[in-house]
Amino acid sequence: MQIFVKTLTGKTITLEVEPSDTIENVKAKIQDKEGIPPDQQRLIFNGKQLEDGRTLSDYNIQKDSTLHLVLR
């Protein structure tokens, strides 16, 4: 499925993911596309910070959902 990740600069990254993917996996995909190390990434969905060990389906993230990427 496709999800979107919006950065603070207003750029939107499109990712191909599975609901069973962990947040860690998603961060690795963002690193592949953008070169941002996962330990600098914080992903936010519906105002909640997403934890590495959880999956997209844990957070009820579905296709065409938009996550927000904050760098630390």
Rank of each mutant, 00 (worst) to 15 (best):
M1E: 05
M1K: 04
M1T: 15
M1W: 06
Q2W: 10
Q2H: 02
Q2M: 07
Q2T: 15
Q2G: 09
Q2V: 13
I3R: 00
F4R: 02
F4K: 04
F4Q: 15
V5W: 01
K6V: 15
K6H: 14
K6L: 15
T7A: 11
L8F: 07
L8I: 14
L8M: 03
T9H: 15
G10S: 12
G10E: 13
G10T: 09
G10W: 03
K11D: 15
K11P: 13
K11Y: 14
K11E: 05
K11T: 11
K11W: 04
K11S: 11
K11I: 04
T12N: 14
T12M: 15
T12D: 13
T12K: 11
T12L: 07
T12Y: 11
T12R: 02
T12Q: 10
I13P: 00
I13H: 06
T14N: 05
T14I: 07
T14R: 07
T14G: 13
T14Q: 08
T14F: 12
T14V: 10
T14L: 04
T14P: 12
L15I: 10
L15W: 01
L15E: 01
L15R: 00
L15Y: 02
E16Y: 05
E16L: 07
E16H: 07
E16R: 05
E16D: 08
V17H: 08
V17L: 02
V17I: 11
V17S: 02
V17A: 03
E18F: 09
E18A: 13
E18Y: 15
P19A: 06
P19D: 08
P19R: 09
S20Q: 12
S20F: 08
S20D: 12
S20T: 12
S20N: 10
S20E: 05
D21E: 11
D21G: 10
D21R: 08
D21K: 12
D21V: 06
D21S: 13
D21H: 15
D21I: 12
D21P: 00
T22W: 12
T22A: 07
T22D: 14
I23D: 01
I23G: 05
I23W: 03
I23S: 08
I23M: 02
I23T: 04
E24R: 04
E24W: 15
E24F: 08
E24T: 04
E24N: 03
N25D: 07
N25F: 09
N25P: 04
N25L: 03
N25S: 09
V26S: 02
V26L: 09
V26A: 12
V26D: 00
V26F: 14
K27F: 10
K27P: 00
K27I: 15
K27R: 07
A28S: 15
A28F: 06
K29W: 14
K29A: 09
K29L: 07
K29Q: 04
I30P: 00
I30A: 10
I30H: 00
Q31W: 08
Q31Y: 02
Q31G: 06
Q31R: 06
Q31H: 10
Q31I: 02
Q31F: 11
Q31A: 06
D32V: 08
D32S: 04
D32N: 08
D32M: 04
D32Y: 14
D32P: 12
K33V: 07
K33A: 14
K33G: 07
K33N: 10
E34N: 07
E34G: 05
E34Y: 06
E34R: 01
G35M: 11
G35K: 09
G35N: 13
G35F: 09
G35Q: 11
I36K: 08
I36V: 05
I36T: 14
I36F: 07
I36E: 03
P37Y: 06
P37K: 06
P37G: 09
P37N: 08
P37T: 13
P38V: 14
P38D: 12
P38G: 13
P38K: 13
P38F: 11
P38R: 14
P38S: 15
D39F: 13
D39T: 14
Q40G: 02
Q40K: 05
Q40Y: 02
Q40D: 14
Q41P: 08
Q41I: 06
Q41V: 06
Q41G: 13
R42E: 15
R42K: 04
R42Q: 15
R42N: 12
R42I: 15
R42H: 11
L43E: 00
L43V: 12
L43I: 06
L43H: 02
L43M: 05
L43P: 01
I44L: 10
I44E: 14
I44F: 05
F45H: 14
F45K: 02
F45E: 01
F45V: 04
F45W: 05
F45S: 13
N46W: 06
N46E: 13
G47T: 05
G47R: 15
G47K: 01
G47A: 10
G47S: 12
G47P: 01
G47I: 10
K48S: 14
K48N: 14
Q49N: 07
Q49F: 03
Q49S: 10
Q49L: 03
Q49V: 04
Q49D: 02
L50P: 02
L50E: 00
L50S: 01
L50H: 00
L50Q: 01
E51V: 04
E51T: 02
E51F: 02
E51K: 02
E51Q: 03
E51W: 03
E51G: 13
D52K: 02
D52G: 03
G53M: 14
G53P: 07
G53H: 07
G53F: 05
G53T: 09
G53Q: 06
R54I: 13
R54K: 05
R54M: 13
R54N: 04
R54E: 13
T55D: 11
T55Y: 12
T55V: 06
T55I: 12
L56W: 08
L56K: 00
S57L: 05
S57N: 07
S57I: 14
S57V: 07
D58K: 01
D58E: 11
D58F: 12
D58G: 02
D58M: 08
Y59F: 05
Y59P: 00
Y59M: 10
Y59E: 15
N60I: 05
N60H: 10
N60A: 06
N60V: 08
N60D: 08
I61L: 15
I61G: 01
I61K: 00
I61W: 01
I61Y: 01
Q62E: 14
Q62A: 11
Q62P: 10
Q62Y: 10
K63P: 13
K63L: 13
K63Q: 12
K63V: 09
K63I: 07
K63Y: 09
K63S: 07
D64W: 08
D64F: 11
D64P: 02
D64S: 04
D64E: 11
S65R: 02
S65Q: 15
S65W: 15
S65E: 11
T66G: 08
T66H: 14
T66F: 08
L67A: 08
L67G: 02
L67K: 01
L67E: 01
L67Q: 01
H68R: 08
H68W: 01
H68E: 15
H68S: 05
H68A: 07
H68P: 02
H68T: 06
L69A: 07
L69G: 01
L69M: 15
L69T: 03
L69I: 13
V70Q: 15
V70R: 03
L71N: 06
L71W: 03
L71D: 15
L71G: 10
R72N: 15
R72D: 14
R72T: 13
